[in-house]
Amino acid sequence: MQSRIEALVAQVSEIIVGKEDAIRLAVACLLARGHLLIEDVPGVGKTTLSHALARSLGLNFRRIQFTSDLLPADILGNSIFDREQQRFVFHAGPIFSQVVLIDEVNRATPKTQSALLEAMEENHVTIDGASHVLPVPFFVMATQNPQHQVGTFPLPESQLDRFLMRLELGVPSRSAERTMLLGLERRDLVRDLKPVLEGEALREIQTAVRGVHTSAALLDYLQDVLEGSRRRHRTGLSPRAGLALLRASQAWAFMQRRDMVLPEDLQAVGVAVMAHRLGEDFETTAEGGRALAQSLLRETAVA
């Protein structure tokens, strides 16, 4: 199974050159059944990355561009009266697909954001009193611009917590940029991608990830990290964050072809999982969150 994951990573890496670490983390996030937030300045390939991932997964895929006038019904769907059948018929919104790409999630109003995040948390949506189950697997990739850009509604702390990981892509290296400049148009490349991981295989992998062994020693270490954050910051990591860290570490360990989680796995995903949960601490920015997460890992001893 791991070889297919490697193939997936390799394929996406061909599109997004020089960002293999970020891509691996994104895949780990997917395998851990978490949702992904990608934050960076425009034009570094956020959207392309999510496109490429969705295509390579062979899942059905929708993209929603968030704008400030977007309403909850625009993403969830609504009931419309059908004249022929003489009753209301539910028209599912774009959220009813296995991979949903939300572009610029912080451009929509808080009302719309919360509708989306509620769906992410509950895995179903309720419209006009009727409950509609979302497809499985259900994977949300959201991109957002850095918060200080004009016309954004920053996601509140509680909702950032719903994303398992937050990634920053960053400007590519000089050689990677050169490759990109010389190569074909990225969007065309994405269109031609072939799926390397079918839906059924993905579900199997996701189940296997849950089975990766977590020893008492590792849980000790994980709890040391959590306690460290609570000791040092106003609001430390929540228990939900602890669970997220555990699941992400399991996925990472699985990708490393291991049947147990090592502290190294936790450290590999740690910054991506913790940074946005610590970033709202007073007077810290996204950069600050990363620094806090890194120093937290650096100061927690592995027994």
Partner: peptide
């Protein structure tokens, strides 16, 4: 280093 895992 205190934080360093065994494999690394």
């Amino acid at each position: 280093e205190p934080w360093e895992g065994p494999i690394r």
